[in-house]
Write a protein that binds this DNA or RNA. Structure first.
Lengths: 356, 356
DNA sequence: ATCGAAATGAGTAACGTTTTACAACCGTGA
DNA sequence: TCACGGTTGTAAAACGTTACTCATTTCGAT
């Protein structure tokens, strides 16, 4: 018989009667609201301590705040999200607020369900990371709940945005390769079914900037893009396709490090070497990129700073700010050993014969 | 003036008055409880549809359920957790339950705070992944809230456990190396400040099994362990240390793929090659391990199945089951290209002279 | 002393649901 | 016709907290 009655939680009433005061007084102490004498405060806090009382979030949510920040992540697979969360957690640090996460998935339906779930749970604020929902839907949400959108560039009057300057970052990447002497630079892009204005999506910006910079340096004819996804599998597939083209590119700019890993694999698979035959540059500078055997050249953007900023903006909004803010982080180039000047011999040893 | 009054949410009362019935009736329809005629049901559902009503989770939490499953993850950096969550989400699928995640961190204090946060939010069930808390604390929690613990092996009367058979997995790994002819096999282990019985911790089991299998095959004298952490950085550091020993090991069994990546880096750094000079085997079979240029031999354990099982056990418990269950997944060996027979020449080319 | 304002505490009504209890209605069998 | 049991609906009381209102006390300035 594994019964063992589920214990009743200790409530504010228990504390009040134990401390011989009203529940109102206890509530005030908890929220350190105006109108409690030091004596009262001590007394109540002692009772709280003694009984191990913890306020019941659902009940609080009925009247006031839930002290909960909801974070919507598309998935848990990107190491970059972990950094954002670290920043957010740090910012929430000693406040009473707690971050909870929810997985949005890749379809509109699943993302919708996740957002609704957060709204149903009466979170005090929402951080939406790289959503695929349309701007109008996000604004609808933001009218009800303080909202910060991370990783999209749009300008909204009702929510704040936090993002890295992807235009600058992509320019750093492509110009780094051009400075090394490359001209046949290919790009691996990402495709999802986001309903945002394309120009507000970071992966579109990276791709567009790639094209612009190529043209600016007279390499407009060398533009070659494989559109797959920002993942290892996507990078592998995309790079395979790019490497099969003729003439073969001498460098690949992958829109994300994960994709760059896939690209490295494809290069290896083709019997070519990095950076002798092909240079590869990634984006995000995830930790694995720094391992000495990988040593991936990448674009660093400080996820922790972005997470911190998002947290602060959210807290401000909860406190009542209504004006909208855009917070941009500036990325930087981290040169490692996957990029080098192109080899003199136009095509490497493993070049397959041209078609037809 | 960015005012735009925050709209009042539509409540059960709104639905009731719109459908000209009592709130009780609406509540019954929502929960499809006993005592509603088909006519009533249709009528109410139409009203719900029309008004776009969604039940208010906090209010529900006051009397009944919150339809929320809390998931405590130590961090977001392990790709393995993503799989568990996929399995859980799949299992929760079309139920009304929603999974929310919270980051437990690496200290007892932060994990405690996270668990309390879930309890305060009145989740209906908790999935605790690889916790560091003591068993007694988990049992205390489990007496109040249906709980499933994932990745620890202990046997509890009040909560369920879901884990992979790490003993079998580690044995597969070590015997694979021994079958290839290796004898000087080193191990990279993980250390944290968990308060569990050591024998219940997966990383301890992997290490102990490594030692046992070594002894069973007469390699007891060759046992060499570097205790760092199951991360790329930990693997790098650990492998550096192991490679500096003399005689140098011919194979490394890393307790996790992430650590194996670090080990690969260290081997490369030392001017040695895999698998010619050193074989490396990981654990978890994360996606990156399958990339053709990495091709890491690893131990596969099905995280999705584990997540699904955890979800089902949780739902069962919420429905009233009180008996405890232990669910174990059996791992399998995935041979790729980082393991091979040891080279004949005892030490590779980069061997440093023996000390003294 | 007296007045008024400020400080302090308590009582009570919400908040949006679920649960319990019960009333009204129906058809059925005696 | 009556009593009865089952069905279908409603009213009202929780659940634990906060916000609002108001009464009492304290204290400084006159």
């Amino acid at each position: 018989m594994a019964t063992s009655q589920r214990r009743r939680r200790v409530t504010i009433t228990d504390v009040a009667s134990h401390a011989q005061v009203s529940t109102t007084a206890v509530s005030k102490v908890i929220r350190n609201a105006y109108g409690v004498s030091p004596a009262m405060k001590d007394r109540v806090q002692a009772a709280i301590e003694e009984l191990g009382y913890r306020p019941h979030a659902a009940a609080r949510g009925m009247r006031g705040r839930t002290f909960t920040i909801g974070v919507l992540l598309p998935d848990l697979r990107s190491p970059f999200f972990a950094e954002i969360l670290d920043g957010l957690t740090e910012q929430l640090g000693d406040t009473e607020y707690q971050a909870i996460m929810i997985q949005g998935g890749t379809t509109h339906k699943s993302e919708r369900r996740a957002i609704d779930a957060l709204a149903d749970r009466q979170v005090d604020g929402i951080l939406i990371v790289a959503p695929i929902a349309a701007k109008t839907r996000l604004e609808e949400l933001a009218r009800d709940i303080p909202t910060v959108v991370l990783a999209r560039h749009e300008r909204s009057a009702v929510y704040d945005t936090v993002f890295a300057d992807d235009d600058a970052g992509a320019q750093l990447a492509v110009e780094h390769l051009i400075d090394l002497g490359h001209r046949r630079i290919a790009h691996i892009a990402h495709q999802d079914n986001a309903r945002a204005r394309p120009a507000d999506l970071l992966h579109v910006i990276r791709a567009e900037t790639y094209k612009r910079v190529m043209r600016d340096h007279g390499c407009g004819d060398e533009i070659a893009i494989a559109t797959t996804s920002y993942s290892a599998e996507g990078g592998l597939e995309g790079a395979r396709e790019l490497l099969s083209r003729s003439p073969r590119p001498t460098a690949i700019f992958a829109g994300a490090d994960q994709a760059a890993f896939g690209a490295l694999a494809a290069v290896h698979e083709a019997g070519l070497s990095v950076p002798a035959d092909i240079s590869v540059i990634g984006y995000d500078n995830i930790r694995l990129a720094a391992l000495p055997n990988i040593a991936l050249t990448s674009i660093d953007q400080d996820g922790v700073v972005m997470g911190r900023a998002a947290g602060r903006l959210l807290l401000d909004r909860i406190e009542g700010r209504t004006s909208a803010v855009r917070f941009a982080v500036v990325p930087s180039l981290v040169v490692r050993r996957t990029t080098a000047p192109p080899s003199e011999s136009g095509q490497g040893p493993a070049s397959t014969s041209a078609p037809t």
